[in-house]
Design a binder for these strands. Structure first.
Lengths: 134, 134
DNA sequence: CGGGATCCATTAGGATACTG
DNA sequence: CAGTATCCTAATGGATCCCG
């Protein structure tokens, strides 16, 4: 069987069948970002308005300087947040959500909502699984 | 300031403010599962119907035995998939989505849809960020 | 066939110290 | 204030072998 090589080549088999091959890797990246430890917490923190570096460091519970810097850098590269630096003394930098970032957060909120809704159900399942003697 | 200690204690500050403290850890767990490398691929593979262990090993692109076993175990503990073993020779084991698992997949699909919709936009942002000389 | 158990490489991420 | 740079540990995940 022959497949045309130009334009959108589709994934032939597996869970991603039907998606353009190029998108699959990208979707994986988005999911990684969603699942990583800090990105969503930072985005959620910025939802109410722009914040400074040290504000985020204080507000996001448990984040280290290193991870905050790293996370902000990734989110900015993806265009999910915007960085504004003001040439003052002392220097001031403000981070804010872009429309894109806000859109992602909206989607994720529905996921968090689902998690909250089914919290008890999953907890029961886990308890039952843990209680299984063998 | 004093806060009542009994019943649902709320997170006072940060991005999780207003959520019951107990739920925050749980939501993190769900997001970890969503972001992990294989869970969603396995769930997506099972969407069309139940599959056997070796089928999944073949269908999910690149997964190792170890990770498939691990992933299946976690998903089963959470009640997202069901395992049915038939005492035959050779043995046969079938995995299938539970209603809970299907519900999660529906939510995640909207996330994947968002990713696909904004694929170009994010790619442009990344390209621009990469091109920035300084 | 459907896994466990083990070993190993890669990576994520925390603590800390330093800089413009 | 807003980061960088360095070091180090813990977790993730792949490859392989074995077993009922």
């Amino acid at each position: 069987m022959e497949v045309r090589a130009e334009s959108a080549r589709m994934v032939a088999e597996g869970p991603c069948a039907g998606y353009p091959a190029e998108h699959v890797e990208f979707i994986r990246q988005v999911l990684d970002r969603v699942g990583d430890k800090w990105s969503l917490l930072v985005i959620a923190s910025l939802e109410a308005g722009s914040l400074r570096y040290t504000d985020l460091l204080r507000i996001v519970p448990g984040i280290s300087q290193r991870m905050l810097t790293l996370t902000l850098s990734q989110l900015r590269q993806d265009g999910l947040i915007a960085r504004a630096a003001y040439a003052e003394v002392p220097p001031r930098v403000e981070y804010s959500l872009t429309p894109l970032g806000r859109g992602l957060y909206d989607i994720v909120r529905s996921l968090v909502g689902w998690a909250a809704d089914h919290h008890d159900e999953i907890r029961e399942n886990r308890a039952r699984a843990a209680a299984t003697p063998k």
